[in-house]
Each structure stands twice: as C-alpha cells, then as structure tokens.
Simulated scan of single mutants.
Amino acid sequence: MAEKTDWEARAANLLKAELKRKGVTYAQLVDRLAEIGIYEKEPNIRNKLSRGKFTAAFMLACFEAIGTVDLRVV
C-alpha cells in the first residue's frame, strides 16, 4: 500500500481536526452530507480520512456540511 504523502496527511488532519472542533462524528457527517446531496457511507468516509485520499471538492463539501465558515490553514 502506498504511504500517505505529507500533503495528504495534512489535508486529512485538517479535516479531522475541524470535525473534532465542531464535535461532529463520522456518522453525523454522513447525515449532514446527505442533507446537501452527497451520499457517502460511514466506512467510506473513515477510509478516506484514514488514507488521506479525497478530493478538494469532498473536503469543501465536508466543511460546508459541518458549518465551517472560517478556516485557518498554516
């Protein structure tokens, strides 16, 4: 299995940190994504975040779904 690049790890950590900060579980994220028309299963989300393999569009949709308005990327 290919290892995560630094950029993939950084993206996954950014999204996981925002979920934690907002107090949103993966199961809740599934429901919130469905509300905006994106249908994922919890194991798929868990795998995406574990591997760090997801599109920028998916990450933006997650931020929208959990109500992230401002994001500091450093």
Rank of each mutant, 00 (worst) to 15 (best):
M1I: 03
A2T: 03
A2M: 07
E3C: 01
E3T: 07
E3R: 15
K4G: 00
T5Y: 10
T5R: 05
D6R: 08
D6G: 07
W7Q: 14
W7A: 14
A9L: 15
A9G: 07
A11L: 13
A11D: 10
A12K: 03
L15I: 15
L15T: 14
L15D: 00
K16V: 03
E18S: 09
E18K: 15
E18D: 08
E18P: 01
L19I: 09
K20W: 00
R21F: 05
R21N: 13
K22N: 07
G23D: 09
V24Q: 08
T25P: 10
T25N: 02
T25A: 05
A27K: 11
L29Q: 02
V30T: 15
V30L: 06
V30Y: 05
D31W: 00
G37K: 01
I38L: 00
I38G: 04
Y39H: 15
Y39C: 01
E40K: 14
P43W: 11
N44M: 09
N44G: 13
I45G: 05
R46L: 05
N47Q: 13
L49M: 15
L49C: 05
S50Y: 12
R51Q: 13
R51D: 08
G52E: 07
K53C: 01
F54W: 03
A56R: 07
A57K: 13
A57T: 09
A57I: 07
A57F: 01
F58A: 01
L60G: 03
A61I: 00
C62Y: 04
F63P: 01
E64M: 02
I66Y: 05
I66K: 00
G67P: 10
G67D: 09
V69G: 07
R72G: 12
R72T: 14
R72C: 06
V74F: 09
